[in-house]
């Protein structure tokens, strides 16, 4: 009994730390909300908003969806979805191609620590530069169309892809490179026969994962005029036409789920 009682006194007071931690989080939460100017009339009419939304969803515009009836096919959701997919796909492809040299540039194994640091720094800047701002800039050069979307996604993807490619290169087995050195291979030959066969699967898998992200991005970029579904979405949102918004949302959900499913299936095959 004595020993146990003494031991109980020794028990670390974890709950004090926990309480302080939880208390601080709650305080910060309250503070976050306190700073927000809440539009109470809107909050009070959420019920009505919900009804309006549901009514819109119950009245999906199928002519608009398929691009039939009064709509030309090029105005329909199906066509716009294909444009969005095209922006994502070509943008991802472009990003992956451009990311390969950056991957090497940021790989400690290939270019050494010093240069890799610089490569990494460039990639960080690309990664943290807000995508939509990049799109706003590129819009001036490439116009209000899907090409801007492709360029934005292509450039923005380099940040993440380059970093992950560099990691894939750094994690691979180095002994085949030694063997290639031994047979007198030059740098390009080492890349072709020593590196590419080893990292191809990882690189493809990373690129497919990025495609998932980019399909969502391509939708959003349309909002500022970079092609695809986004433009119609923001137009419908401005007038709160839930029947049109719902039609577009349906397409987004189907598109994203399909691409996710295909991409994760293919990634499963790769490992």
């Amino acid at each position: 009994m004595r020993a146990a009682e003494l031991a109980l006194k020794r028990k670390p007071k974890r709950w004090v730390i926990n309480l302080v931690f939880v208390g601080a989080t709650v305080a910060a939460m309250v503070y976050s909300f306190a700073g927000s100017t809440i539009n109470w009339t809107r909050v009070r009419t959420i019920g009505i908003s919900l009804r309006v939304m549901m009514e819109g969803f119950a009245d999906l515009q199928w002519d608009f969806f398929f691009g039939t009836g009064i709509f030309r096919f090029e105005e329909g959701v199906i066509y716009l979805t294909l444009v969005t997919l095209a922006v994502a796909f070509i943008g991802t492809f472009m990003g992956a191609v451009l990311a390969i040299p950056f991957g090497f540039l940021a790989s400690h194994n290939i270019v050494g620590k010093r240069v890799a640091r610089i490569g990494e720094a460039i990639l960080v800047i690309i990664r943290v530069f807000p995508e939509i701002v990049l799109a706003l800039i590129l819009l001036k050069g490439f116009g209000m169309n899907a090409l801007t979307g492709v360029m934005t996604i292509g450039i923005h993807s380099i940040g993440m892809l380059g970093k992950l490619f560099a990691e894939a290169i750094d994690n691979m087995d180095k002994s085949p490179l030694e063997a290639l050195d031994a047979v007198g291979a030059n740098a390009w030959q080492k890349i072709r026969y020593g590196i590419i066969p080893q990292v191809a699967a990882d690189v493809s898998s990373i690129t497919l994962y990025r495609l998932d992200i980019n399909v969502r991005s391509a939708t959003v970029l349309g909002i500022i005029g970079a092609g695809g579904l986004g433009a119609s979405l923001i137009l419908a949102a401005d007038s709160w036409s839930w029947n049109i918004l719902g039609t577009i949302l349906l397409a987004i959900v189907i598109m994203v789920l399909t691409v996710d499913a295909i991409s994760s299936y293919l990634r499963g095959k790769l490992v």
């Binding site: 927000s36 100017t37 809440i38 539009n39 009339t41 809107r42 909050v43 959420i46 908003s49 919900l50 939304m53 969502r216 991005s217 939708t219 959003v220 909002i223 979405l233 923001i234 949102a237 709160w240 949302l249 987004i252 959900v253 994203v256 789920l257 996710d260």
Partner: peptide, 18 residues
């Protein structure tokens, strides 16, 4: 599935901008 920006768009409809 739904991008954050579209969620924001919908939220603005329900509780107003801000």
């Amino acid at each position: 599935t739904i991008p954050a920006m579209i969620l924001a768009l919908i939220a603005v409809f329900f509780v107003g901008t801000g």
